[in-house]
Computed example of a mutant assay.
Amino acid sequence: MTTQAGLDTADALTTLELTPGFDVTYLPRKIEELLDATEKPLHRAILKNYLRHALLEISGYWEEILVPELTIDEPVYRIAERGAVHSLVGHEAVLGFYREVFETKTNVMAARATNMCVGDFGVVTEMVFAHMTPGAVLVGQDIGQPVDPDSHYLIQHNVMQNFVYTAGAKLIGERVYDDPVSYSYGKLIPSEVVTPEMAREQLAPFLSRAALD
Rank of each mutant, 00 (worst) to 15 (best):
M1F: 14
T2V: 09
T2K: 12
T3W: 13
G6K: 15
A10L: 14
A10V: 15
A12E: 14
T14E: 08
T14N: 03
T15W: 07
T15L: 11
T15R: 14
T19Q: 10
P20M: 10
G21T: 12
G21W: 13
F22E: 02
L27C: 09
E33G: 08
E33N: 13
L34A: 04
L34M: 08
L35A: 02
A37Y: 08
T38G: 01
P41K: 02
L42D: 02
H43S: 07
I46S: 00
N49G: 11
L51E: 00
R52E: 04
R52Y: 01
L56E: 01
G60T: 03
L66V: 06
E69T: 06
L70G: 01
I72G: 08
E74R: 09
P75W: 02
A80L: 09
A84N: 15
V85W: 10
H86E: 14
V89T: 11
V89C: 10
H91S: 08
H91Y: 11
E92K: 13
V94K: 00
F97A: 06
R99V: 08
E100D: 15
V101H: 02
V101C: 07
F102M: 11
F102A: 11
T104G: 11
T104Q: 14
V108L: 02
A110P: 06
A113T: 03
G119S: 15
D120L: 10
F121G: 13
F121P: 12
T125N: 09
M127T: 06
G135R: 03
V137H: 04
V137C: 07
L138E: 05
G140D: 04
D142S: 08
G144I: 04
G144R: 03
Q145C: 06
V147A: 05
D148K: 12
S151D: 14
S151E: 08
N162M: 14
G168Y: 15
G168C: 10
G168H: 15
A169Y: 02
G173A: 06
V176N: 08
V176K: 02
D179K: 07
D179Q: 12
S182W: 06
Y185E: 02
Y185Q: 05
P190N: 06
S191V: 06
T195L: 10
E197I: 09
E197F: 13
E197L: 13
A199F: 03
L203G: 00
R209T: 15
L212E: 05
D213W: 11
D213H: 13
